[in-house]
Amino acid sequence: MNDFYKGKRVLVTGGLGFIGSTLALRLVDLGADVLIVDSMIPAYGGNLFNIEPARDRIRVNFSDIRDAYSLDYLVRDQDVLFSLAGQVSHLDSMNDPMPDLEINCRSQLSLLEACRRRNRDVRIIFASTRQMYGRPQYLPVDEDHPLVPIDVNGINKLAGEMYYGLYHETYGIRSVRLRLTNTYGPRMDLRSDSKGFAGIFIRRALLGEKIQIFGDGHQRRDFNHVDDVVDAMLLAGADERVSGECFNLGHARPYRLLEFVETLRRYTNVDFELVPFPSERQAIDIGDYYGSYERFHAATGWEPRHDLDEGLQDTIAYFRRFPDEYL
């Protein structure tokens, strides 16, 4: 994998966000010529400081992937495309569904159309979500689990996935779809209150504020450190054998929310309280979820390297170094 990216032209949409910037930094270290596209819409988490360690080695185009005309130019001559631009808030997708439709569905189709017109040889890695499974019918969830999304975000991400599959089969535009679970780590967006509990919990822990856990705290989740997610993306982009496939990411060890908070308490002075679910969150809560990544492991050898304790220690240390940039 390390040699594959040397000299490659790589486009990362959403590249100033949490996962995109971590990926871009790794790509630069691997010798890739990296172009980032990011709209810098405040609510979506783009942050120029995220690429500070390699600011002079990464090109940035401030553009919105909803602009189909700019996509024709941006995809030309790229060898690999990481499609990470997205609206990731499940709650926001319900409160204001049209931006989610535009970004997670229509824009993905526009991106594929640009590749069909200008660059059919590009390899695409699409960051999808476990939310499309809805409430698990069995655990761990594998890729054969029924797809029954319970919010607008899950529906639009599923449609986006289907576009990638269609264009792979019909036009030969190679793509891999990775279904991400709860991702955490340095550079994550801590300011949002709607992107998931991990960022909210970490922010409150760093600020010494009380964490509110909805329900009884026994809900189980799996977690991936961002470095492990980037490893998976790089493997997917470099391995021709996985083209056309979709895979879960995940972790062998799920944690209850109470265990997540207890792990945070090893590195911060934080307290918590149990509170009833707000009705709007209860309606889209999926209960217990943890996925099987065995199919991706069998195909590529990938498995997560970070356990939660090590990962949260690393995350807390990063944000304590740069509080003004993230808090």
Rank of each mutant, 00 (worst) to 15 (best):
D193R: 13
R305G: 07
E262G: 07
M1G: 09
F201Q: 03
F319Q: 01
V122R: 02
V28M: 11
A114W: 03
V28C: 13
T170Q: 15
E102H: 05
E325C: 09
G31V: 11
F214P: 00
T300R: 09
D38M: 10
S192G: 09
G215N: 07
F49M: 05
L207D: 06
R120N: 04
N182S: 04
V152Y: 00
D231G: 00
L25H: 02
L178W: 06
F197H: 05
D324T: 08
V261L: 09
R116T: 07
F82L: 08
V152N: 06
N50E: 08
A159L: 10
I19T: 09
D121L: 10
Y293E: 04
T181A: 00
V275C: 14
T170G: 06
D56L: 08
P254N: 10
M233N: 08
E273L: 14
I211C: 13
D307M: 06
I155C: 12
D285P: 06
H90P: 00
G20C: 07
Y164N: 07
L91S: 05
F296G: 04
T13R: 07
R55N: 05
R116V: 02
R305K: 15
C246D: 04
G250Y: 02
G311W: 04
G154Q: 01
F126M: 05
D38R: 10
R204V: 00
F197L: 08
L16I: 13
T183L: 13
E325H: 11
D309P: 03
T183H: 08
L235F: 13
Y293M: 08
I202V: 14
M94N: 02
V261N: 08
D3F: 07
E52Q: 14
A283M: 12
R191F: 03
G196Y: 10
I19Q: 07
L23H: 11
L180S: 05
S83W: 00
N269R: 12
D96E: 14
L16V: 12
H251G: 02
E259M: 02
